[in-house]
Design a protein around this nucleic acid. Sequence first.
DNA 1: TGACAAAATTGTACGAAGTACAAGTTCGTG
DNA 2: CACGAACTTGTACTTCGTACAATTTTGTCA
Lengths: 195, 195
Amino acid sequence: MSHDLGRRERKKRDTRRAIQAAALRLALADGVESVTIASITEAADVARGTFFNYFDGKSAVFIPDPPWTPGELRAKVEARPASESPLECARAVLTEALDDLEADRDLADLWPRFFRRYPGMTPAHRPELEHALAAAIARRCRLRPDDMYPVVFTHVVMASFYSARTLAATRGQPIADVLGEALALVADGLVPPQS
Amino acid sequence: MSHDLGRRERKKRDTRRAIQAAALRLALADGVESVTIASITEAADVARGTFFNYFDGKSAVFIPDPPWTPGELRAKVEARPASESPLECARAVLTEALDDLEADRDLADLWPRFFRRYPGMTPAHRPELEHALAAAIARRCRLRPDDMYPVVFTHVVMASFYSARTLAATRGQPIADVLGEALALVADGLVPPQS
DNA sequence: TGACAAAATTGTACGAAGTACAAGTTCGTG
DNA sequence: CACGAACTTGTACTTCGTACAATTTTGTCA
């Protein structure tokens, strides 16, 4: 299930990765503040205009591509057994996503180093994926995507995910474990633990 | 409790508001894309440098000032009765905040019109306030601010708040009511409603 | 009041970001 | 192999953001 892309699509994918890898390497070497688009395109050996063909702007190059398209995310949700609660379903799907991160060797090595050095740059929103999750959960519960429940559910689950990522970084634990604990708190209605 | 500011502080506050009001008026008149810092400073009759004395950048001028400082937020939380659950406490404090918005007449009129026209520009994060809320809730529960519960709690409550703001905008309901419903869902552990 | 010090405003200059567009090159397809 | 579509390149221009020195305003204290 690997080369169902033509040469053109493969080249595009490689160029995108090359630009991203160059940007990350420069950031890790010289500090992210001193990275300019000129230095990136020079390192990746492409023209300035090409950079803007692949990324909306400088900040976009420091956001990892999500492991799944919105359509794939929706499929994953629908593949879960109907007996699962929405929260357990979301936990399983997100945990699965954490394992699928980054097929490219270079990038799989660079992203963690980058975010360890610049924790504040971890992306805090992925509107397309959040919208897809809301739609999938809505279907699952036979509600409309802009009903109250799917909207609140999605935002809360994503908030738990981002909390878990932060907490997992400060401690040394794996994200999936922390996410499980966080969602357990939510499932209990955010009752405070007795100190 | 009004004029415990010297003339200097009052002038600074007025200048800040004048710049913000000029920016909002231009955005509403010509579209936010065509607003430049030059046009803002011309309309507000200040120098370009002055703009950067008051705002970190162009995008910062389109973010309303929070009604309370972190310290005030903390005081509000501590003023709530200890018998309240954290969720109910947060709901009360946030509802109270919604009433305290924007003392300036011009801005109180301009902000809603602006966000109605550009819903995507509603700020989605207020790290300083979120940190203050986390600290206050942690104190309330006799936990440390970077423990799991306060972090997850704060992110989840804020996510509910932003959800409520979005939902309240699409329907015509007051935000406080929608927020109450959203937090009720959270308090129930995000159990899906039977369709 | 008058002078001094702190703070805010102003103007200038410069590197980099982002946009637009025309010209050239590469790729897939018939 | 030839054609059209898509991608790349180079150039030019506007705007953003920052630095810095000069100037004006403000608060304070003698």
